[in-house]
């Protein structure tokens, strides 16, 4: 044994770590690096020309803008949802709680065609909404609906455990000092929930940006209007424009990495403020 090497009682560390690293490299790291290496065959001007073409820029607006909006809506309603699940008792609560994870479990293609059927002009809700001038399916609004669907569980499932662990003493202290419920929520609970809420928001956003299956059916996919960035990558691939697809993929990957980094930081913050209690 080399000096300074920690003494390990449990066996299997070299095997487990070695296997983990090899598998991670083969499945994830090497394939992902292909994207960056491929895009390196373009020089900067060419690369910039691809990723800043008007149609591509429009797709960023659609993808990132609607993802942000959907994540924000989910943050508000997800918080209410988590609150109701933890704090109140009502009939059917167990089923509601179990079904929150539906968007995790339901394949996106199924969700996509179901949402389209609901909001299409002849659909269950579409037939009532369209006469009111509210076209949902095949418009950006439809994309928003799909992104809300897939993002909801991220917020609920990050906020819910924090709410459950929350010590009632904090609220009792606030009440004994004369605060009303809104003041207690605003000044005592919300700051405690904020890290988890932001984590859920970021997770929902990250998922929405890359989402493909549930969106393409309802989106209408009109260039410059309702075309999401992942679809643009596929379109380029189908035209054998591998370089173009790769360049856009690089942009998305960089955004993903930044988000991953951010989410890790947020989770670290959330865990720390939970552990401090």
């Amino acid at each position: 044994m080399r000096a300074g090497k920690p003494h390990r009682v449990l066996p299997g560390f070299p095997l487990a770590l070695g296997y983990t690293l090899v598998y991670l490299a083969l499945i994830v790291l090497i394939p992902l690096s292909a994207v960056f290496l491929k895009s390196a065959s373009l020089n900067w001007e060419q690369f910039w020309a691809v990723i800043s073409a008007p149609r591509v820029l429009a797709s960023y607006r659609v993808s990132f803008g609607l993802s942000l909006l959907a994540a924000a809506i989910n943050a508000v309603f997800g918080l209410i949802f988590a609150w109701v699940l933890v704090r109140y008792h009502f009939p059917g609560k167990r089923i509601v709680d179990a079904l929150v994870d539906l968007p995790f479990a339901l394949p996106t293609a199924g969700a996509g065609i179901a949402l389209t059927a609901i909001y299409a002009g002849n659909g269950w809700l579409g037939q009532w909404l369209e006469p009111l001038g509210l076209k949902v399916a095949f418009t950006p609004l439809g994309i928003l609906v799909a992104l809300i669907f897939i993002g909801l569980p991220f917020v609920v499932r990050t906020v819910q455990p924090v709410l459950e662990d929350l010590d009632t003493e904090l609220e009792e202290a606030a009440a004994s000092l004369g605060a009303d419920r809104w003041q207690t929520f605003r000044h005592v609970l919300l700051p405690v929930l904020l890290p988890a809420l932001l984590t859920g928001f970021a997770l929902a956003f990250a998922r929405a940006v890359g989402e493909y299956g549930s969106v393409i059916f309802i989106a209408g996919n009109v260039p410059l209007v309702s075309e999401i960035t992942p679809l643009l990558i596929i379109t380029k691939l189908e035209q054998y424009d591998y370089i173009g697809a790769t360049a856009i993929a690089v942009v998305m990957l960089i955004v993903s990495f930044i988000l991953l980094f951010l989410i890790n930081g947020l989770q670290f913050w959330a865990n720390r403020s939970r552990a401090r209690s």
């Binding site: 010590d167 003493e169 904090l170 009792e172 202290a173 606030a174 000044h187 005592v188 405690v192 403020s273």
Partner: peptide, 8 residues
Amino acid sequence: FQHYALFR
């Protein structure tokens, strides 16, 4: 409170 319940 027993565990102080300070707003951290």
